[in-house]
Design a binder for these strands. Structure first.
Lengths: 238, 238, 238, 238
DNA sequence: AATGAATGAGTGTTCATTCAT
DNA sequence: TATGAATGAACACTCATTCAT
């Protein structure tokens, strides 16, 4: 579909177009993003676009693909060297949120993809989930987590990450009230506040069947409410 | 914005338009849904549309609002009479999935709203989350669940529901591979398979700090951890 | 395909568009005739076009259809009341040439149709030919003409008419040399010179097996050669 | 206009381009035939085209010129050695139809030329007609045909050949009804059925003033009128 | 001689919206 | 209240042609 450039100059032009497309799609979404806006931003003629992409949908798909590889890379890089599944999970989420903050296109593009290019969307989610599933299976084999259906758990994790990310990264200010859609691009540079990440990981830790690793034992002696919260970070053992 | 009809006939016309809009938006998404398609389906003239709605965005917002009320109603109806928070949660999710299966518009419309009408989207999610938060607060006060930040937990629950719903209700066939987007409307009538719902609730039960309560409908506090888990059928899904 | 207008005003607009299309197609041919040129000439907005015609091809087909009916009408009107087949033929051709002179679109549109809308073209020719065939059959039954396959003869007549029309009506000046394509519309208002029509009918008369009716008998008593010839002035053109 | 190549390699490239152009024009017609399609098919770069042809119209004209020479050559070759004008005519038409079957481009290209390059078209027809005129003059001088204006007759013959060729060669199946324009290129390989050619020649024979000569290949002047005609099937009566 | 990158004017078509009736 | 006619800006996409290499 999308012709590959045969020269270095062409390669460069193609990259300019892809970068411009990411920005424009992130700003306007698929439908409002016109090819001419993309070529304008890339600084090339309108016709040049079609030298490298067969259709507008074509760049879109390529962009989703590209973003997918990049988030997954960021996540696995982030998780590398973690000493436990939970720690890896936390690092992975942190990397995901960081990537999201840097590339709001991820959300806007991916969420719109449901209607624009359903296949691309499914592939995107499925691949990330696949990574979760693998990690969960290993962790289960190592006895690190309880027995939980890895597929269901993986999709649940995906959902948690997406929603928390949307709420705290994309929307930005935790106290923000709806009503300011002047410039949707302006928001979305925040990070997930630490305590949110903490709570989220406690939630996940419990979910994965190792509440003892995740935070406060609830069944066991449980009057240490306050204490339980305070030590939230660096929770090592009960 | 949207003029209110003054006569009974007008009221009826308006309802026809809204109903038509739901179908058309669900089928085509916001951008592909043209006003003329809506009026065609409603069986009224094109100009009539503007008697009741100021703009296309106007119906969209109203539709999101409407759907929001209906899901929330369905969820609270579903959860009514549950004997515990967990049970209520499960019933609520079940109701949510059922509603989703019946109204795929919920997903398609809401996900596209991110770019079309961000405010409407935020309001939609926030309201549902608000319901979760209230429930979680009560449950915490009753000691039914562990201490977990209700706001974070609520958004996490929202994410789980959305993602599981998308995966098993909207996409339908659990074994479906990307590649068949022939008729995106055709899919999405499935129900979430029982074991998926079971596993999801175990996940959530653990997350909310009562893994012991998650396995079975819990009447009396019990410590039969292992047993509770073991009865989960078909765990370790495909 | 092409929506029929529901009001008188719409009916009028549609007619304006069709008339404009005829002119524009005649001037520029199908490909160079842009929809906007048509709407400009019709004095309506560009979008209005699509209220009455689904596509550009749509008007084209309708125009071919329309022209076809009109030529055939003109031809049968012209031939009405002729006292013999040959006379009818001559009158029909004369009417055809007259129509051609008035509506050069016939040629330009029809000839281009071969590639644009082959079906329309075949239908056009077939219908005219059908008329010839009917006439020839009747004439044969009446013993007015010799025995000749009416289908083959009809297509031959069609070809004669088209080529003579192109040469003397469309191209105009019999002495015109190729080289002036400045304004192809400017030409094509000439009539077929009488002697050309005469010779053409002699040709056809002979072809149809009644040389005795057509002009100079060649086999039969043939001393009236000079007389036969003399009425054709300046024969042996160019 | 079109630069002549200076080297053998260039000469070859030019020929490749011309051959490709014939195919592409025949398949798509002038307007749909893009330069890039031509260069693709020729297996050369896009820019190479402009080394040999100034514009797209340029190749078109050259192609018409080329085809013209080839048909005329084919026709005169076919007619060579005929023992009478009529026989020569028949052989010429047969050659013309054969050429047409092998090069449908002739029709498609030439008919479109009316609007694309009127001069080229006129030149094309005029040259063929010139050949007819010469032949008719000679035949008239030899007393082989009646006295008929050779110019008018020549254009009539041209029209007959074109129309019969279109009907039986280009459209193919004699029973074909309009409605199947799936692949306009696929058709056009038929030959004119013998009886059609026979009837056509009888038509022409009569037209040229020697109906007695039209029925059979004539070696010696014969008076066996009826016999000669009888072998033509489905004739009604003499 | 040959190429492929680049261009921008131009195309057919859609659609939210307005308005006279 | 209801309509359908009308609009024009906007869009995705094509293509003959130019040019640096």
């Amino acid at each position: 579909m999308s012709a590959k450039p045969r020269t270095a100059r062409g390669e460069q032009t193609r990259r300019k177009l892809l970068a411009a497309a990411e920005v424009v799609f992130a700003e306007h979404g698929y439908h409002e993003a016109s090819v001419s806006r993309i070529t304008d931003r890339a600084g090339v003629g309108q016709g040049t676009f079609y030298l490298y992409f067969a259709t507008k949908l074509d760049v879109f798909n390529e962009l989703v693909e590209d973003l997918n590889q990049r988030v997954r890379h960021a996540m696995s890089e982030g998780a590398r060297g973690a000493s436990s599944r939970l720690e890896a999970e936390r690092a992975g989420f942190a990397a995901f949120f960081k990537f999201t903050a840097a590339h709001p296109a991820l959300y806007r593009v991916v969420r719109e993809a449901e209607l624009v290019s359903p296949d691309a969307l499914r592939l995107h989610y499925s691949r990330i989930v696949e990574g979760y599933i693998d990690g969960l299976r290993e962790a289960a084999a190592d006895g690190e987590i309880g027995d939980i259906d890895p597929t269901v758990a993986a999709w649940a994790l995906m959902g948690i990450g997406e929603m928390i990310g949307m709420r705290w990264v994309l929307w930005g200010d935790p106290d923000a009230e709806p009503g300011d859609d002047a410039d949707p691009t302006a928001s979305g540079t925040r990070e997930v506040p630490p305590h949110v990440l903490d709570e989220m990981m406690r939630f996940i830790g419990g979910a994965l069947g190792r509440p003892d690793l995740a935070g406060d034992p609830v069944v066991a002696p449980s009057n240490d409410d306050a204490a339980g919260r305070d030590d939230a970070p660096e929770r090592g053992e009960s």
